[in-house]
Simulated assay, not measured.
Amino acid sequence: MKKLHTLLAASLFAVAGNALAHGDDHAHTPRHGGVVTEVKDMDYELVAKPGVVQLWLRDHGKPADVAKASAKLTLLAGTDKQDVELKPAGDRLEATGSFKTAAGTKAVVVVRIDGKPASTARFTLR
């Protein structure tokens, strides 16, 4: 029984040490000043400003290739609804125009990457 406790304790320390060592890779913090949500091990960071909407994707902390990606964003501000198509723009998906981006606005984005099944991410703007 003592060996089992020792083995269990050693395993817990190994897992905790590994998690701490890789903490920055999996931090769900904004890197571009937006709002972050996680869906299926992918971080989605939405930056919504009155003239531009940008979406960055990170797969296990590393930037995802968005060259063959597209997204449909729906902004819900009170009774107003706005649909926006996001297209690749370097390392992110982006659209320019006039957007309602007040604090409390809800955003839903459906992302398609290179023929894979679509993923849906939800945000509340701050």
Results as ranks from 00 to 15, higher is better:
residue 3 K to T: 11
residue 11 S to D: 04
residue 12 L to G: 04
residue 13 F to A: 07
residue 13 F to N: 03
residue 15 V to D: 02
residue 16 A to H: 03
residue 17 G to C: 04
residue 18 N to C: 00
residue 20 L to E: 03
residue 24 D to E: 15
residue 24 D to M: 11
residue 26 H to E: 15
residue 27 A to N: 04
residue 27 A to E: 10
residue 29 T to Q: 13
residue 30 P to F: 10
residue 33 G to C: 04
residue 34 G to Q: 08
residue 36 V to G: 03
residue 42 M to G: 02
residue 45 E to K: 00
residue 47 V to T: 09
residue 48 A to W: 00
residue 48 A to F: 00
residue 48 A to H: 01
residue 49 K to S: 10
residue 51 G to R: 12
residue 52 V to E: 08
residue 55 L to D: 04
residue 57 L to G: 09
residue 57 L to P: 09
residue 59 D to Q: 11
residue 59 D to Y: 02
residue 62 K to W: 00
residue 66 V to S: 06
residue 66 V to N: 07
residue 69 A to D: 10
residue 70 S to F: 10
residue 70 S to N: 14
residue 71 A to E: 14
residue 72 K to Q: 15
residue 77 A to W: 14
residue 77 A to S: 15
residue 77 A to D: 15
residue 86 L to F: 02
residue 87 K to M: 13
residue 93 L to A: 11
residue 93 L to V: 08
residue 93 L to E: 06
residue 93 L to I: 05
residue 94 E to W: 00
residue 96 T to V: 01
residue 96 T to L: 00
residue 97 G to Q: 12
residue 101 T to S: 10
residue 104 G to R: 06
residue 110 V to H: 03
residue 112 R to E: 15
residue 112 R to N: 12
residue 119 S to N: 07
residue 120 T to Y: 00
residue 121 A to Y: 06
residue 126 R to L: 03
